[in-house]
Protein backbone atom coordinates (compact mmCIF):
# COMPACT_ATOMS: atom_id res chain seq x y z
CA UNK A 1 0.00 0.00 0.00
CA UNK A 2 1.23 3.46 -0.92
CA UNK A 3 2.20 5.70 2.01
CA UNK A 4 -0.69 8.11 2.55
CA UNK A 5 -0.08 11.85 2.60
CA UNK A 6 -0.54 13.40 6.01
CA UNK A 7 -0.84 16.88 7.42
CA UNK A 8 0.35 17.67 10.92
CA UNK A 9 -0.33 20.72 13.04
CA UNK A 10 0.51 21.68 16.62
CA UNK A 11 -0.72 24.57 18.75
CA UNK A 12 0.68 25.61 22.12
CA UNK A 13 -1.80 25.90 25.00
CA UNK A 14 -1.14 28.04 28.07
CA UNK A 15 -2.61 26.89 31.37
CA UNK A 16 -4.86 29.44 33.08
CA UNK A 17 -5.02 31.79 30.10
CA UNK A 18 -8.70 32.11 29.23
CA UNK A 19 -8.07 34.97 26.81
CA UNK A 20 -6.56 32.53 24.29
CA UNK A 21 -8.52 29.46 25.31
CA UNK A 22 -9.97 27.68 22.31
CA UNK A 23 -7.71 29.36 19.75
CA UNK A 24 -5.99 26.06 18.98
CA UNK A 25 -9.28 24.29 18.27
CA UNK A 26 -10.45 27.25 16.15
CA UNK A 27 -7.26 27.15 14.08
CA UNK A 28 -7.54 23.39 13.71
CA UNK A 29 -11.12 23.72 12.47
CA UNK A 30 -10.05 26.30 9.87
CA UNK A 31 -7.32 23.95 8.61
CA UNK A 32 -9.79 21.05 8.38
CA UNK A 33 -12.25 23.22 6.46
CA UNK A 34 -9.52 24.43 4.11
CA UNK A 35 -8.49 20.89 3.18
CA UNK A 36 -12.11 20.06 2.48
CA UNK A 37 -12.98 17.69 5.31
CA UNK A 38 -16.74 17.04 5.59
CA UNK A 39 -18.28 19.90 7.64
CA UNK A 40 -20.02 17.56 10.11
CA UNK A 41 -16.74 15.74 10.79
CA UNK A 42 -14.81 19.01 11.14
CA UNK A 43 -17.40 20.15 13.65
CA UNK A 44 -17.12 16.96 15.72
CA UNK A 45 -13.34 17.21 15.76
CA UNK A 46 -13.45 20.90 16.64
CA UNK A 47 -15.82 20.32 19.56
CA UNK A 48 -13.73 17.47 20.96
CA UNK A 49 -10.47 19.38 20.44
CA UNK A 50 -11.96 22.46 22.12
CA UNK A 51 -12.93 20.43 25.19
CA UNK A 52 -9.46 18.88 25.35
CA UNK A 53 -7.80 22.27 24.95
CA UNK A 54 -9.98 23.82 27.64
CA UNK A 55 -9.10 21.01 30.03
CA UNK A 56 -5.45 22.00 29.62
CA UNK A 57 -6.30 25.67 30.22
CA UNK A 58 -8.41 24.83 33.28
CA UNK A 59 -6.33 22.11 34.92
CA UNK A 60 -2.75 22.13 33.61
CA UNK A 61 0.27 24.45 33.46
CA UNK A 62 1.00 24.17 29.78
CA UNK A 63 0.41 21.86 26.89
CA UNK A 64 0.06 21.32 23.22
CA UNK A 65 -2.84 20.43 20.95
CA UNK A 66 -1.64 18.32 18.02
CA UNK A 67 -3.44 16.85 15.06
CA UNK A 68 -2.52 14.54 12.24
CA UNK A 69 -4.78 14.29 9.23
CA UNK A 70 -4.67 11.44 6.72
CA UNK A 71 -7.21 10.40 4.10
CA UNK A 72 -8.53 7.69 6.41
CA UNK A 73 -8.48 9.29 9.84
CA UNK A 74 -7.87 12.39 11.89
CA UNK A 75 -5.93 11.95 15.12
CA UNK A 76 -5.82 14.55 17.89
CA UNK A 77 -3.55 14.64 20.91
CA UNK A 78 -3.91 17.03 23.84
CA UNK A 79 -0.74 16.69 25.89
CA UNK A 80 -0.12 18.63 29.05
CA UNK A 81 2.27 19.18 31.89
CA UNK A 82 -0.06 19.23 34.84
CA UNK A 83 -1.34 17.50 37.94
CA UNK A 84 -2.67 14.42 36.14
CA UNK A 85 -6.08 12.83 36.74
CA UNK A 86 -6.32 10.84 40.00
CA UNK A 87 -9.38 8.83 38.96
CA UNK A 88 -10.01 8.69 35.21
CA UNK A 89 -13.22 6.68 35.54
CA UNK A 90 -14.67 9.32 37.86
CA UNK A 91 -13.49 12.13 35.57
CA UNK A 92 -15.34 10.49 32.67
CA UNK A 93 -18.59 10.62 34.62
CA UNK A 94 -20.96 13.26 33.31
CA UNK A 95 -21.40 16.05 35.84
CA UNK A 96 -18.19 15.34 37.77
CA UNK A 97 -15.75 18.24 37.76
CA UNK A 98 -12.86 19.52 39.85
CA UNK A 99 -12.85 22.96 38.21
CA UNK A 100 -12.57 25.83 40.69
CA UNK A 101 -15.39 28.32 41.22
CA UNK A 102 -13.88 31.18 39.19
CA UNK A 103 -13.73 28.83 36.20
CA UNK A 104 -17.30 27.64 36.74
CA UNK A 105 -18.46 31.25 36.78
CA UNK A 106 -17.28 31.49 33.17
CA UNK A 107 -19.52 28.57 32.25
CA UNK A 108 -16.84 25.88 32.29
CA UNK A 109 -16.60 22.94 34.67
CA UNK A 110 -19.98 21.39 33.92
CA UNK A 111 -18.32 17.98 34.08
CA UNK A 112 -19.15 17.41 30.42
CA UNK A 113 -15.76 17.89 28.79
CA UNK A 114 -14.54 14.30 28.72
CA UNK A 115 -18.07 12.92 28.00
CA UNK A 116 -18.27 15.36 25.07
CA UNK A 117 -14.93 14.08 23.78
CA UNK A 118 -16.11 10.47 24.09
CA UNK A 119 -19.36 11.32 22.30
CA UNK A 120 -17.64 12.97 19.36
CA UNK A 121 -14.52 10.85 18.90
CA UNK A 122 -14.52 7.34 17.45
CA UNK A 123 -11.71 6.44 19.84
CA UNK A 124 -10.63 8.07 23.08
CA UNK A 125 -7.65 7.10 25.16
CA UNK A 126 -6.33 8.83 28.27
CA UNK A 127 -2.86 8.37 29.67
CA UNK A 128 -2.16 10.21 32.88
CA UNK A 129 0.62 10.32 35.45
CA UNK A 130 -0.01 12.09 38.74
CA UNK A 131 2.21 15.11 39.17
CA UNK A 132 3.43 14.94 35.59
CA UNK A 133 0.63 15.33 33.11
CA UNK A 134 -1.99 13.87 30.85
CA UNK A 135 -2.24 12.82 27.22
CA UNK A 136 -5.68 12.63 25.68
CA UNK A 137 -5.70 10.81 22.35
CA UNK A 138 -8.69 10.93 20.04
CA UNK A 139 -9.21 9.34 16.67
CA UNK A 140 -11.88 10.20 14.11
CA UNK A 141 -12.53 8.00 11.10
CA UNK A 142 -12.53 9.92 7.84
CA UNK A 143 -15.25 8.14 5.92
CA UNK A 144 -15.79 10.82 3.29
Amino acid sequence: MVEQAVLEVAYQVVGGDFSQAGDGASRLKRVLQQIGLAPALSRRIAVAAYEAELNIVIHAYSGVLKAKVSPVKVEVWAEDQGPGIPDVELAMKEGYSTAPDHVRALGFGAGMGLPNMRRNADELEIKTVLGEGTIVYMCFANRA
Partner: peptide
Protein backbone atom coordinates in the same frame (compact mmCIF):
# COMPACT_ATOMS: atom_id res chain seq x y z
CA UNK B 1 -22.61 26.24 30.55
CA UNK B 2 -20.35 26.10 27.51
CA UNK B 3 -19.93 22.29 27.47
CA UNK B 4 -23.69 21.91 27.59
CA UNK B 5 -23.94 24.07 24.49
CA UNK B 6 -21.11 22.15 22.84
CA UNK B 7 -22.98 18.92 23.51
CA UNK B 8 -26.44 19.95 22.41
CA UNK B 9 -26.64 23.07 20.25
CA UNK B 10 -27.26 22.31 16.58
CA UNK B 11 -25.85 23.92 13.47
CA UNK B 12 -27.54 27.26 12.63
CA UNK B 13 -29.37 27.51 15.93
CA UNK B 14 -29.47 30.57 18.16
CA UNK B 15 -27.89 30.45 21.61
CA UNK B 16 -29.42 32.46 24.44
CA UNK B 17 -27.00 33.10 27.30
CA UNK B 18 -25.96 35.57 29.93
CA UNK B 19 -22.28 34.64 29.55
CA UNK B 20 -20.63 37.54 27.78
CA UNK B 21 -16.91 36.72 27.69
CA UNK B 22 -14.87 35.89 24.60
CA UNK B 23 -15.03 32.09 24.98
CA UNK B 24 -18.72 32.35 24.05
CA UNK B 25 -17.66 33.56 20.61
CA UNK B 26 -15.22 30.67 20.17
CA UNK B 27 -17.97 28.16 21.00
Amino acid sequence: MLSDVLAHAALDCIWVTRQSHRNVIAV
